[in-house]
């Protein structure tokens, strides 16, 4: 690969990195999205600031009923962590569905959310988990909800010079069931459609439903109408089919070589029904 000439710095601390980014540097994490674009010269950054050597960005911690996942934590770490598997299985399922082992060994949580690929897997799970993104900037830190973080395809609410420091997800409560199911685009592995579902059940009723959908449109979004239809229902097969039929409501579906808009919309409801059924069976 022969990209355009660039400078490369690998700071050891986040503070050093912030200074370099303030003067126009571009963050480099796993490079699994950035480097292919540099190869094609679609991205031509002048200065790469490698976040990979910063030790205190690579962690998975539990605190106060939440899991904190550092920005440079690899997909493989999220997938295989006993903590995530035990306390937030939906997130490890999404991580395990990303690309292939090589990608998962190198790609990172922070890089994936910052890149905001409309077919990435994490956004669906983060929406269903009502996750928070902790952002570090020159002036300090701010926290935004996943719903506010993803703005458009490849566009987030990150301002220039800001980085994702960590992602925060709630520890799964008793009575919760989750599932992430995707149809991969066969060439890239990205989601043609991916549906993340989190449901809680009590007294024979679905009391909470959160459904995140990726691949279908410009961003990973929450399927509000489907959630509403499910909540309060008994979660029968019929209830599920009806709710699943609403996941693509009002969505301007993507269309490309691999799937037309109609097919994607259809798949969204099929995968939603399957994911809801799987999640409800665990709740």
């Amino acid at each position: 690969m022969i990209p355009q000439t660039f400078e490369y710095t690998a700071p050891k601390t986040l503070d050093e990195a912030m200074a370099l980014l303030a003067s126009g540097g571009k963050p480099l994490a796993g490079g699994m999205s950035l480097i292919p674009m540099m190869k094609l010269r679609l991205a031509t950054p002048e200065h790469l600031v490698d976040l990979g050597r910063i030790k205190d960005l690579d962690y998975i911690r539990e605190a106060a009923g939440e899991l904190h996942i550092g920005a440079t934590t690899t997909h493989y770490s999220v997938e295989s962590s006993a903590l995530v598997r035990g306390k937030c299985p939906l997130l490890s399922a999404a991580a395990g569905a990303i690309g292939d082992p090589q990608i998962r060994n190198v790609g990172t949580m922070g890089g994936s959310v910052a890149h905001a690929d409309p077919a990435a897997d994490y956004p669906a799970a983060l929406q269903a988990l009502e996750a928070k993104i902790v952002i570090r900037g020159a002036k300090g830190e701010r926290t935004v909800s996943a719903a506010d973080f993803f703005v458009d395809a490849f566009t987030t609410s990150l301002e220039s010079g800001e980085v994702v420091r960590e992602v925060v997800v709630p520890v799964e409560q008793a009575g919760t069931g989750t599932s992430y199911l995707k149809m991969p685009q066969p060439a890239s592995g990205f989601a043609i459609v991916g549906v993340a579902v989190r449901v809680q059940r009590s007294g024979g009723k679905i009391t909470l439903a959160r459904i995140g959908v990726t691949g279908l449109s410009n961003i990973g979004y929450r399927a509000w109408a489907a959630e509403k239809a499910l909540e309060g229902s008994a979660g029968s097969a019929d209830d599920i089919t009806k709710a699943a039929a609403l996941v693509a409501q009002g969505i301007d579906a993507n269309s490309d070589l691999h799937a037309s808009a109609d097919y994607r919309r259809h798949l969204a409801s099929v995968y939603a029904a399957r994911a809801i059924t799987a999640a409800a069976s665990k709740a």
């Binding site: 060439a187 890239s188 070589l257």
Partner: peptide, 26 residues
Amino acid sequence: WEQAVYDDNGQLVTGEYTDYTMPRAH
């Protein structure tokens, strides 16, 4: 899986392995 797809202007749409589906072991 595989197909070389051109658009009407003669641009190769499947110009990278992200769109050209090479069979892989899995």
